[in-house]
Simulated scan of single mutants.
Amino acid sequence: LIMNLGDYDDSVKTPDDELSTYDKWILTKLNETVKEVDDSFAGYEFDKAASAIYKFFWSEYCDWYIESVKPVLYGDDPRGKQRTKSVLVRVLKTALQLLHPIAPFISEELYQRLRVFGVELSATEGGAAESIMQSAFPECNDTQIYRDEHDEVELMKEIVVGIRNLRAVIGLHPSEKVSVVLLPESDRARKQIEANRGFILSLAALSGFEIAEKDKPKKAIAQVIPGVEIFLPVEGLIDVGKETERIKKEIGKISKDLERTEKKLANPEFLERAPEEIVQKEREIFEELSFQIKKMEDVLNKLSEIG
């Protein structure tokens, strides 16, 4: 972001009525995070504050918002670019203020790099803040909580995650393009999906998708999320019979390892004589193997629906 601020003018403010759905979503997430962090600091729950900042910065801001606005940033609309950079910078400045009490050096360094491009915070005593320490701690702005836009983007995120889960079920490479069928429960969801077609296609690595009326496709694995059913047709993508046999063999191998670990943990002498860290390590292995088997059994159940 900082490397692409060469033509950015921080003095140009974006009116709220020009904000996109994704802009309003990230501003809602930002203000919710500000409130959560402020409440955590007030209750001396610094671990919760740090966790909230981390989740917002890496998941909401980097993983979702930046990815969603890349088409605008790399597009041909100068006004759209300015608007998007304005929101990106506004959110980043506030995130650095939230981070400063926990990580003062890195947040200050990043702020100083922003200042090179004319991006500055306001000092509590007036003028521009030469340091983050001279600015006031952020406050939640209730006028920038856009519930409708927030819920719309959250639904799109769930759809993308659902599609990614289905891709993982049959072992598709992340770059391999496929097509899916979406079956919304309401006209509202149908319109929202159509309005966010580019977002879904890009982030779910799809060649296309169909919004169905009521008919469910045959020979497809399904994922159900609130308001939408997702179907990934697998005909031509995998051999269901061979994939089923492969997974069964893998379950057999892991089950033997699980049985050995279970016998260890059921042995009183092992529990009594082995160092605690060794016992704990075996418990972690048991949980991981159990989890792997559960995931594979879930895949078998999905494959059996189309077999």
Rank of each mutant, 00 (worst) to 15 (best):
K302M: 14
E130R: 15
V240N: 01
V234Y: 04
D7W: 08
A212H: 01
W64R: 06
F199E: 01
E139A: 08
G126C: 05
A95V: 11
Q112Y: 06
L182V: 06
K302L: 15
Y54E: 14
E125S: 15
V89S: 05
K55P: 01
E45T: 09
S59I: 12
P184F: 02
E67Y: 01
R90T: 11
L265V: 03
R273A: 11
L19I: 05
W64I: 12
R260L: 11
G236Y: 09
Q82C: 01
M156V: 13
K302F: 01
V12T: 07
K93M: 15
R83T: 04
D215W: 03
G162L: 03
G75S: 09
I163P: 00
S186E: 14
S186N: 13
G307D: 13
L271H: 04
A220L: 03
A42V: 00
I230N: 11
K242W: 07
E60H: 07
V153E: 01
L1M: 13
D257R: 15
A128Y: 11
D76A: 12
P138C: 06
I170P: 01
D10L: 04
R79S: 10
S207N: 08
S107G: 08
K191Q: 14
V181A: 15
V69F: 00
D9V: 01
K177T: 13
L27R: 11
F291R: 13
E36Q: 12
L232C: 05
K216Q: 12
L303G: 03
V91R: 03
S122Y: 08
L172F: 00
D187R: 13
I211Q: 04
L27F: 05
V119Q: 13
T28V: 02
I2T: 09
V234G: 07
V178K: 09
P275D: 10
L289W: 00
P104Q: 08
K264T: 05
G75A: 08
A189K: 10
E284M: 11
G127M: 08
G252R: 11
M296V: 06
E262N: 14
M296A: 03
L92D: 02
P138F: 00
K216L: 02
G75C: 06
I247W: 12
W58Y: 14
G43V: 01
A222R: 12
T21K: 09
K214L: 04
D7V: 12
I211K: 10
V116Q: 10
D239Y: 08
V279C: 10
N165K: 11
V228R: 04
E109G: 01
V12S: 09
W25F: 10
G241C: 07
V178Q: 10
E32N: 13
V91H: 00
L172A: 04
K242H: 11
L96V: 02
I200C: 07
K295Y: 08
H173K: 15
L300F: 04
E235M: 12
D7S: 13
D47E: 15
L265E: 12
E213D: 14
N196D: 03
D77S: 12
S255G: 05
V12E: 09
L232F: 02
L232G: 05
A123Q: 04
G6L: 11
